[in-house]
Simulated assay, not measured.
Amino acid sequence: MFKTLRNELILNYVLEPAGPLLIKSGKDNGLQPERPNMTVMTTYFQGKECPVIPGSSMKGVIRSRLEQLLRSFVKEVGGESREMACYITDNDTPDNCNKKVEDAKNITDVEGKYAVACRACQLFGNTFLASRIKFSDAIGKEGIRLAQRTCVAIDRVTGGVAGRARFDVEVVETGKFYGDIHLRNFALWQVVGLLAVLNDIQQGIVTLGSATSRGFGRVKITALQGQFRDYRLDKPSDVLWGYRGQKDQLKFWQEFEQAGFYQQAPVDLQMLDRWPELMRQRDFLALLQADVR
């Protein structure tokens, strides 16, 4: 899959909280009673401690959402949703891609493992396949403002605070987080699906971090820049190809050009709302079904 580099997509984005954002650090502050019970995760960038959204958090949220979309869209038109996204965390189901490879003792080559994998595992990888997509940490570099929120449990009878069930959390209220997403040897359905999930994040449908059911975790994509690279000499300039070349081309490739992906300039964020609808088109389903099995 990666012996030859055919194409790449590099997305640089800026996220800003649209409300309180809590990516928990997991630190125990028992010896620091003046600190909140839960604190935001931080890292050091250029000698300064900054809040961070780990790449693993971004990958997990985006993978989970895309798996849901793949299952629902394909099943909606009478397809087999199990082939599109397995239940990777459920080791008891036969649809788990890791289990399929373990059970099939005769599959030893990468191509064979890729062929039996679902579409989600083909993109994000599993314990037998490397991922086609990489997520960097999104580091809060500018305008960071932290705040403290007090949370309580409510007594169902009195409506007041239940005993001593009170704790404090640290949240990011404002700031700019810079990160990037890198796709290599991608199929075109993978790009469309990724942009559809980014649109869901932009709309607040998909949230990040902890306490999302209490209004935390909404973010906005305030800047997005994308760049396609194709290293094949025989690729025509007027069409967008996936890693399989002419067999993997997008009929509505003009959507990418209109969004600004070919100009190495900021992408028109209003274009993001087009991708979920594109996922429902027959062209997208044809790309899914044409991908290597």
Rank of each mutant, 00 (worst) to 15 (best):
G242N: 09
C97M: 11
D283L: 04
V161H: 00
F216W: 06
G217R: 10
D238N: 15
I88F: 08
T39D: 05
R71E: 10
Y231L: 14
R132I: 00
G179T: 06
Q225T: 12
D168N: 13
L272I: 06
K99E: 15
I107N: 10
A165S: 08
D230C: 09
G19E: 05
G26P: 05
S131L: 08
C50E: 10
K100P: 02
A187C: 13
V219F: 08
K27E: 14
F186P: 02
H182V: 01
G160D: 09
I10F: 02
A104G: 05
V101I: 15
Y114K: 14
Q263M: 06
R232D: 13
D90W: 06
T89E: 12
L188K: 07
F256D: 11
I107F: 00
C151R: 12
A259R: 02
G215T: 05
E67V: 02
I201N: 06
S237G: 12
N98V: 11
E102W: 02
A147D: 12
T4G: 09
L208F: 13
N106E: 14
S81L: 03
D234T: 15
P51H: 10
A290W: 03
D92E: 12
K141W: 05
L288T: 11
Q148H: 06
I181D: 02
Y44G: 01
T93E: 10
G209R: 04
G179H: 02
P54C: 04
M1E: 10
A196Q: 02
N96K: 13
V101A: 10
W253S: 15
P54F: 04
G226Q: 03
E142V: 07
S81V: 00
N7S: 08
I133M: 05
T93Y: 09
D180F: 04
V116F: 03
N106K: 04
A18P: 04
F252E: 14
M84F: 08
L288Q: 03
V157W: 12
L146R: 14
L250M: 09
G242D: 13
G226S: 00
R164P: 04
F186W: 03
F252G: 01
R184F: 04
Q270R: 08
G175L: 09
A265R: 07
M271G: 07
V206W: 08
L22C: 10
V171F: 11
D95A: 02
D92M: 06
R164Y: 09
